[in-house]
Write a protein that binds this DNA or RNA. Structure first.
Lengths: 215, 215
DNA sequence: GTCTATACAGGGATAGAC
DNA sequence: GTCTATCCCTGTATAGAC
């Protein structure tokens, strides 16, 4: 018997993964059909089952992969905006805007995250834990590390870096996630920018370094 | 032909509404079956169709009703904690805790909200607008009015009351909503309290009134 | 030996008929 | 209130093709 998640043409496997990400993201877990995923991937349904066993295993597999990819993408954004900071406020705003775009972009990574959140009650606890660890928790830790570094440089006055990272996310990302229902509906670019700016201003009131004495 | 949403024994209608709220909240829209709702209500499936037309109309009907009820409940909590404030910080913390409980309580109102959020892409724009207006938007407006009043009393220093209301919600409610996935998973009481306290502290750093000069 | 194509068994859903 | 028509989905089986 073919092993679920076992071998096969890696090319096909990749096509299935991508198709499943798209279809699960668009339709949600229950509405998505294995027929539609096979069609989207351009392979036969049997091939999907040979590679992934059953629908649930396929979903969980692409969920974990998606989570890791998104974390990597966000890590790149942090490196771009938070490593060599010159204008802290502007960099925090730009990072917020780009992260919201990356996570909540309609067609891409964000959509699957929404499907996972909708199915959370039906996901085994250990898989959910792995998804969290590879995704949101990892990003939070990365951001906390950056805030700690910025604090040591005197650009922030952060006591609890993990708390600060969460509050930055709450103030700059969640308003967009909320308005768009985690990417299901579009949000105008200008609104994302406005939200980011207001969120960063609030964040700096909580955790900003006191202005350096002049003269 | 029986009018969808028309007459019928109001007793039965109420039982169906309650049953639909429970089953949709527990299973989500797609998984919930009209059989299960009829059984939960203790009526025949035919009666359900006579009262509400079809599955989607039933869902949208209970969604709107649930949204309005939850708003009313939160309004009561605001009256309890934010009308006659003596210890502002404590009252803000208590309100945050109780609101999180009310909205995210596993079995009750919160569960249906999660189902609605999961189905947002399949809900007609006008119904979604009505749901928002009766629910989250109304609560935000109520909270902003309270913050304005507190500001006039000198207990807060709020410039933009709507923004302050949103930030309070972001800092005290969203961390719980996020951890519990909008009520799908339990969150320990102590954690809710810890989050509320940390959120209120951050909120007061943004919008708190400067300490009155003593002596 | 993996993939395609198709057909099919079994279950469950909505919605309507009687 | 039961019963049923119709449809769709998952997962398997049965063929043949590269």
């Amino acid at each position: 018997m073919a092993t679920a998640g076992g071998a096969g043409r890696p090319e096909k496997r990749k096509a299935i993964t991508l198709a499943a990400t798209v279809v699960f993201g668009r339709e949600g877990y229950v509405r998505a059909s294995m027929d539609a995923i096979a069609a989207e991937a351009g392979v036969s349904k049997r091939t999907v089952y040979n590679h992934f066993g059953d629908k649930e295993a396929l979903f969980l597999s692409v969920a974990l992969q998606n989570s890791a990819e998104l974390t990597e993408k966000i890590r790149d954004l942090m490196a771009k905006y938070l490593d060599r900071v010159v204008d802290l406020r502007q960099d925090l705003v730009d990072f917020a805007v780009e992260r919201a775009r990356a996570v909540l972009s309609a067609g891409e990574h964000g959509a699957l995250g929404r499907a996972i959140r909708a199915e959370v009650a039906n996901i085994p606890a250990d898989v959910l834990g792995a998804w969290l660890e590879a995704g949101p928790v990892a990003s939070l830790r990365d951001l906390a590390a950056h805030f700690e570094a910025l604090s040591e440089r005197g650009l922030l006055a952060v006591e609890d870096a993990a708390l600060a990272a969460e509050q930055y996310t709450l103030l700059t990302f969640h308003p967009v996630a909320d308005r768009s229902f985690w990417g299901a509906l579009p949000v105008a670019d200008e609104e994302v920018e406005r939200i980011a700016a207001a969120g960063v201003d609030a964040f700096l009131r909580i955790h900003g370094a006191p202005a350096p004495a002049e003269g």
